[in-house]
Structure formats: C-alpha cells, structure tokens
Nucleic acid binder design. Structure first.
Lengths: 258, 258
DNA sequence: GCCCCAAACAACGA
DNA sequence: CTCGTTGTTTGGGG
C-alpha cells in the first residue's frame, strides 16, 4: 500500500486536477465507511469548490471552499480513480462528480478505506514535521519500545509504514531489533535526519519516476525493503525476518542497540 | 500457597477455635497492610466476639458480633498462628488477643498478606457458587480467552489458583491450551461439574488428611498438578509446561479445543 | 500491508 | 506463586 511519499505525490497530483473544481453531486456507496451520513456529507460539500488536497499522516485531505475537510484513509488497498466510468469500478466507496466534468472515485476491494468529515485535528506530529526535541523526549518516554514499532506507531509519528520504516532504519544504520532507550544521543540525531532524508528523497524519486501517479506505489528504488534485491546498494546481503509482527528487511550494517 | 480447599478447611478450624471468643486487645504490626487504620480497627473489633470465620474467594473472613467483617488475604506466603508466643513469630502483620486466652497471629515473610475491614461485597461468584448459566454467559463474553487464564481470573470466578486450575481441567478432560469459545456445549457442562467436584473432593481429602490444619497445603492427592507424580492415576504421562505464564501440568487425555 | 480492540505478556511494587 | 498497575506485543476481525 502507498506510504507517506506516494501519498504526498498523490495529494499534489489531485490538487493539480481538482483545485477550483466545484462538486456537483456525490454518491456514497459504502455509508458504513464514512463517519458522517450521506446527507451531512452532501450538505457539507455540494456546490463547494476544492481549495486543495493535502496529505496528513497516511490520509488524503480534501479541503473545500467552505473550509470543510474530508479525509480519506486508503488503508491497505484503497485507490483513487479520476474520470473513470464508475460502472467499471468495483468496490466503490465514494464518488464526487464535478461541474467541470471531472469525477473522483475512491474504491477498495478489501472495503476498509474510510472517510472522515472534519475530524478534530491530531496533535501527533507528521513524520515530515518532527523536531529533534520531540523525538528525544518521546524516545525517553518509550525507552523500552522496539525502534521499529516506534516508527510505525501512528500515535507517536504519523505517516510511516512498514517499507519506509525499514528504509529509515537502514539509512540510520540502526538495527530494527534495537530498543529505543539504548540509542546513543548521536545516533538519535542521525535517526531524526534519516527520517526526513529518506522520505523527502523518496518523494522526489516517485515524482521523477511517475509524475502523474494517483495510485499504486513506486518501490523499485528502495535500498533494503525491496523484494527484487538480494543486497543493498552498499553490497550487504539483505536479511528478511518478522520483527515486531512485521515483515522486515535489514542488513548487518545496522547496529543493534540493546 | 493455600488455595480454595485449604482455605475452606482453615476457616472451619478457625471457627471451631475462635467462635464465641471475645477480642481483648489488638496489635497491628504492619499498618500499611491494612486498609483501615489501627484506631478504626480497634474500635470495630475490641470487645466483640467472633461469630464465625468464612472463606470468601481466596480470603478468610472473620465475622464479629457487631457484624464487622475483617478479611485476610494470605497472598503467597501468609500464615495463621494460634496460641503461639508472638515473640517467636517473625514477620507479624496482626495479632488478636482474646479474653478467653487465645491468640491469633497473622504473619507473612514476604509482607504482602493484607487486611480489609468491611470491604464492599464482591459481585463475582465464588467457585463453589457457580451456576451453569453464569459460566455459559461469561465463556461467551470471553470467547477468545485461554481456558486456564479464565479459571484463574479472580474478576470472573473467585478462589481458584494455579494448582486447582490444573486439577479441574484434567478432571474435565480439557487441555489447558484450549480457547473458551471453542468448548462445545456439553463440555461446558462437564467443566462446570468438574469445578465443583474437584474442589469439594479436595476439601474432604484435606480434612481427612489433616483435620486441624490452619496453615500449609495438602497436595499429595492431586492427580496432575503434583511434583511427586510422573503420571496421573489413569496412567497418562504428566506433561509440565508454562502455559498462560503459569507452571502447568496436564496430560494427553485432555482435549485441545481451538 | 491499515487500524482497532482485546488478550497476553513483562516488569515492578507492595 | 498473590494482586494491582502500567506499558508493550500479539492476534483476530473489519
């Protein structure tokens, strides 16, 4: 499933396509997957124009001219479709039809993708807005936690999923089996840095590789969480193992702090 | 440590010794282990006579003529002493001195045994008062829970500890690794029956083996949770394993429902 | 592979 | 091997 870098590019591309477009009508195919009922949803967005589309954590947020926000979480298998005949889309969740002719549809074969209307803003920082003091503090609080679980915990940092957790840990040269409390201070500095470098770099690579991407993931460039590779770019054999209940890729370049 | 059957016999024996005796004075050696302070305690029981001594769950309850109830939980290593010179008792928690000459002392080398004065009555049924509908309902609610954890959960059933949990499961021919939700209805009937049969039978055996017991446990007759045995009375090899974080004894006679 | 929740598990103190 | 609390991990279900 898409993670933060893919989602960031989706949001930019959705903005390009939909900004300024006015919602003419709405179809909600799976009301159970929306926290607001159909009437409330229509009332909030019909005749409103899209001001922009953002990524927040792992969700895509549509902002309307009346400040309504609609957040979409694609979960494992959700997808956006633009200007596709909805007859040809299976497992539809929601469609928005715009006055200018565009159609946006969200679908999910597993049926878990969901919608939130005007959710209360989270106070958990996004992975791209972390500052080192927050990182140092929460590492101190969670000192007994496994470093990979920490990266994946959306209540601590929003946006990182399984693949990029591995990429970040590889970049920071920290073993995914490490325990937070044992990370030396200077390693935390690298760690903080790696989070940003890995994610921002991935965003650029995805844009370069597929400038108009709206669904699916680009993963070929990943250094370690990559089913196509046997070794990292630095020539170390990739080890694949279940760690913290997640399929994890790492190498012996990564130092184990326990 | 003593479990329900031992404690039941202790209570009977304490009743025999102390019923009708009047509290002349009190010494509270470890006030931290009492939820009521010394003055409150004295005020409640001095000059009162003991009406009876009961077992409730894993606690021994002294009932006084003014309806005051004093509950004692022996925890792992607590003990009752009757008419022993308190000079010779280490790790004392509480002593009651009776006008008729008797002395009751509670001690605990680990220091965890504790006293509750007039506790609010629990609405969790005692293991000896279970009815099948309660059992069926809670099994339904907890259908994903391990059967041994269930028996040991004092918030569900009061009084069963590690040893008798094994005995009950062996008697009911249920593997301790079973999951509640998978027990067939007729097995639940046996299960309910085994709880009573095993506990009541143990009470009789303990009385027979040591009619005046006031501390320590009689365990030699246990069929499966028994360090002295290699096989059960039915000739099946006893398997010893840690299950649900507890040292567990069972055999292949016991059916695994998962 | 997502998130949520319940249950299990570990560590600590009393 | 007691109980309670807290924090973390695991497994199932949506």
């Amino acid at each position: 499933m898409p993670e933060l870098p893919d989602l960031t590019v989706y949001a930019e591309n959705l903005t390009k396509i939909l900004k300024g477009k006015k919602v003419k009508s709405v179809e909600l195919f799976k009301p159970q997957n929306s926290d607001a009922d159909f009437n409330k949803l229509k009332e909030s967005i019909i005749d409103q124009t899209i001001q922009g589309v953002n990524r927040v954590g792992k969700e895509i947020e549509f902002v309307f001219s009346n400040k309504t926000k609609l957040q979409v979480h694609l979960m494992l298998t959700g997808k956006f479709h633009i200007n596709k005949n909805i007859q040809n889309i299976n497992f539809k969740i929601l469609s928005l039809f715009f006055s200018e002719g565009e159609t946006l549809t969200i679908s999910d074969p597993k049926g878990f993708a969901n919608l939130k209307l005007n959710p209360t803003p989270s106070d958990v920082p996004d992975a791209l807005d972390l500052d080192e003091s927050y990182l140092t503090e929460t590492i101190q609080e969670k000192r007994r936690t496994n470093v990979k679980s920490f990266l994946l915990d959306q209540k601590i940092i929003r946006g990182i999923g399984n693949a990029y957790a591995d990429e970040i840990l590889w970049h920071a040269k920290i073993s995914p089996k490490s325990v937070l409390g044992k990370l030396p201070e200077k390693v935390i500095i690298d760690f903080n840095n790696s989070i940003k470098v890995v994610l921002l770099d991935a965003i650029e690579k995805i844009k370069h590789s597929d400038p108009n991407i709206l669904s699916g993931e680009i993963r070929g460039f990943l250094a370690v969480h990559n089913y196509k590779r046997n070794e990292t770019p630095t020539g170390h054999k990739i080890i694949r193992e279940r760690i913290s209940s997640k399929d994890t890729f790492y190498t012996d370049e990564q130092i184990l702090y326990v």
